[in-house]
C-alpha cells in the first residue's frame, strides 16, 4: 500500500494507506503506486484521484496551488486549497 498525505496550510487533510493516486502534474498526469521512485512535481489546478483499492471507484479531490513529493515514505501533496 502507498502512504498518501494531503496537507493544506490550514490542516492535515488526509493521512492514509491507499492503492494508487493519480496526480495532475504540470507536465502531465502521473499515477503513484507503492515503491515509486523519488520524484517531485508541481501540480496544475484540478482533481487528484485517490484509488483506495485496486478495483474500487476513485475518490476525486479538487486541489489548487499544489506540489507533490514522492519519497521513501510515500506521496505527500501540499496544496493551498483542497476539497
Amino acid at each position: 500500500m502507498l502512504h498518501f498525505e494531503l496537507v493544506t496550510p490550514e490542516k492535515l487533510l488526509r493521512s492514509e494507506e491507499v492503492h494508487m493516486v493519480v496526480v495532475p502534474g504540470t507536465e502531465g498526469d502521473f499515477g503513484v503506486l507503492e515503491g515509486h521512485a523519488p520524484f517531485m512535481s508541481t501540480i496544475r489546478d484540478g482533481a487528484i484521484q485517490v484509488y483506495r483499492t485496486e478495483k474500487g471507484e476513485p475518490e476525486s479531490i479538487q486541489i489548487r496551488g499544489g506540489f507533490a513529493e514522492v519519497g521513501p515514505k510515500g506521496l505527500t501533496v501540499l496544496a493551498e486549497h483542497a476539497g
Partner: peptide, 11 residues
Amino acid sequence: TSVEAVAEFEP
C-alpha cells in the same frame, strides 16, 4: 530531507 535521493523533477 528526501530531496537528496530525488532523481526526477517536473519541471
